[in-house]
Amino acid sequence: MTLTGDLKSFSFADILQVLHADKKSGVLIVEWKDMTVAYYIKDGELVLARPVDKVFRIYVDRDFEKLLEKLRLRESSLAETVKKFFLSRLDNREGIFSFTQGFIRYPETVPVFYPAEYLIMESARRLTLEETERKISDELLVFEKAPDYEEKVRKARLTDEEQKVLNLIDGKNTVKDILEKSGLDKLTLYRTLYGLLSIGAIRRKRKKAPKKPSISLDLLAKLIEKIKKL
């Protein structure tokens, strides 16, 4: 399975959200104008970032432990690669990405220095207002905390401002309410909501109960039969 797209329309926050939600393992390749970087993903976590001069080199080294030996990397230096080739490149949106699932053989445990939740929040902090409006499309949206939000926000290492936003998410306050009550600027609020939504700490709350469908059961049964016979 391959996931492809470009960073302009699908940010790192979005990509990591998809990879982390399903705990995918594989390799994410981002081709920028100035360099190509392979991001090694194990169970939805970014464990190594490695620049390559040619894409095919990624496919030569399928064994993760042997790759580390070849690159003369100790486990303790993996964090440095993430810092240097992921965190430092979050502002660069000119890249094209593709994720190939499987393919790399990982050992059972690989240390995770930057949890996906942290990286997603960091990515969300760099979004423009226009980009945040892709998810936060309406000031009347209401969010609620997910049941397991505490563990997620602990890993995300929220700033004081982000914590303030989280405290105001109660399934009743609209985005507009939170903006007024928090005293934060719109961009900070929208970035925070985007990040919290992407890490799964919060979710949209449906504003209205579903409307009872305006059709009789008999007619619906006829309709179902008709569609089946088409």
Partner: peptide, 18 residues
């Protein structure tokens, strides 16, 4: 096949849900 349209799809879902 076109992830750049996913956000627009979510906006449409939000519209109809509300």
């Amino acid at each position: 096949t076109d992830p750049k349209t996913f956000h627009e799809a979510r906006r449409i879902i939000n519209f109809f849900q509300s």
